[in-house]
Amino acid sequence: MEPLLKELRVKIVDILDLVDVRPDEIDPDARLVGGDLGIDSIDVLEMVMMVEKDYGVKIDNREVGVKVFATLRALGEHIRQNAPELQG
């Protein structure tokens, strides 16, 4: 798995206090929000802050958010395409 996804898994478990989830249990292609992990809309907003703070990528509308947070892989892809530091 690409390092960015591994890094995101660790960050997500940490910032969302997912006490009963290990980072490697987050399937990059499984539903991220509203699925087995117990992640809800407030968690999404917490992840929005993390993505903006750590990668400089703003996600400020709901339609984009739904797509971006569909899966861990989608989130990684969105960051990879939009993060200033990961360009070129």
Partner: peptide, 13 residues
Amino acid sequence: ESNEQYPSPTDFV
């Protein structure tokens, strides 16, 4: 700490 840039929605709620 974040100079008013990254407030936590979880803590606000």
